[in-house]
């Protein structure tokens, strides 16, 4: 099992992730060219970049400033979610062993904290979906499923790292859940990690280039 999830399954997961996203982005681009020509009429690099960067900075937009707690939570969640797996020591050791490359790595105590941040913020986001009426009304099982898919690699990784009971079990579970997340990205809303840049570029140009209105 370990051989399978770290061998062929890993290749399949990364393959689907990269290929799936490439196909998705390119096909969306061509579909837009075919059916939504209006998007390109007012396209502006300057407004697009401004619109993207503003929304990548914490409290960079008006809505973020109006909901400060939620903004802190989502930013902590997203930042830790991205940083932890990429700069994790053990991930980089694997990279080193297999391909002889490795990135700068986080001290293990720090990545441990970042993992806890991800888990805690996911719990918060789930509770928020239950607690607030305006979020609850647009929430369905699918939203919780995606939260679970995202949280699972972190929960299992945390358990494996701390060697709770059965280390081997948690390790395999961890690798598998990470692969499930990678595979899910191109086919679900998680694709926003790439589409975010496209839709933001569009609205930034649409409101900015065309009317001078800032979308942040």
């Amino acid at each position: 099992m370990y051989q399978f999830v770290t061998g062929p399954m890993a290749w399949i997961a990364f393959g689907i992730f990269f290929l799936g996203m490439a196909v998705k982005v390119v096909s969306l681009f061509y579909l837009t060219r075919e059916k939504d020509k209006v998007v390109f009429n007012h396209f502006s690099w300057q407004w697009s970049l401004k619109s993207i960067i503003r929304w990548l900075i914490p409290f960079g937009s008006r809505s973020m400033r109006e909901k400060p707690l939620f903004t802190i939570i989502t930013f902590s969640f997203h930042i830790c979610l991205l940083i932890t797996p990429i700069f994790l020591l053990s991930h980089n050791i694997i990279l080193e062993e297999r391909w002889g490359i490795s990135l700068w790595t986080l001290p293990e105590s720090v990545s441990d904290i970042l993992t806890i941040v991800v888990i805690v913020t996911v719990v918060f986001l789930a509770l928020r979906r239950i607690a607030l009426a305006d979020v609850r009304i647009v929430t369905s099982a699918y939203d919780y499923l995606l939260l679970a898919i995202t949280a699972m690699p972190f929960i299992t990784g945390f358990l494996a790292y701390h060697q709770f009971s059965n280390y081997k079990f948690w390790l395999i579970f961890h690798i598998l859940s990470g692969e499930i997340m990678l595979i899910a990205i191109p086919f679900t809303r998680l694709s926003h990690i790439f589409l975010f840049f496209m839709t933001r570029a569009h609205i930034g140009s649409e409101m900015g280039q065309r009317r001078g209105a800032a979308t942040w």
């Binding site: 619109s51 929304w55 937009s61 008006r62 809505s63 926003h192 589409l195 975010f196 839709t199 933001r200 569009h202 609205i203 930034g204 409101m207 209105a213 800032a214 979308t215 942040w216």
Partner: peptide, 8 residues
């Protein structure tokens, strides 16, 4: 659309 993170 000014409030949406994705600019929907």
């Amino acid at each position: 659309s000014l409030y949406c993170p994705f600019g929907i």
